[in-house]
């Protein structure tokens, strides 16, 4: 199965965003997985932890939202940033 490739690509994209935000860690990622995306959510969850080792997403919680089509995208992520640092983009406080 190719979920390891998907997990690695997912973390790569998440780290890219996190670096733009000067984040120190990514404690959570929510990903939308379409039923026709060719990605199995259970397999993805199973390999995610290993793929996240030695990345900013180490120990991150992966939330999978299912969708109907071929969607495969990161919908949101939690980032830990130093207080006072401006978080660019559409940022919402939790």
């Amino acid at each position: 199965m190719h979920e390891m490739a998907i997990a690695l690509a997912l973390i790569e994209q998440a780290e890219k965003v996190a670096r733009e935000q000067n984040a120190r860690a990514i404690p959570g990622i929510t990903v939308v997985v379409g039923r026709l995306s060719g990605t199995d959510p259970d397999a993805l969850r199973a390999v995610f932890e290993l793929a996240a080792e030695e990345t900013l997403a180490k120990g991150a919680t992966l939330t999978v939202d299912m969708a109907a089509g071929r969607e495969l995208y990161i919908k949101s992520m939690e980032v830990d940033v130093e207080a006072g640092e401006d978080v660019r983009g559409e940022a919402l406080n939790v």
Binding site: S76, M77, E82, G84, L92, V94
Partner: peptide, 16 residues
């Protein structure tokens, strides 16, 4: 002081 924020995105996993 570390603050936790949620960022809303639409980043394709396979963008690369």
């Amino acid at each position: 002081h570390v603050e936790r924020k949620t960022i809303e995105l639409e980043v394709k996993v396979l963008a690369e």
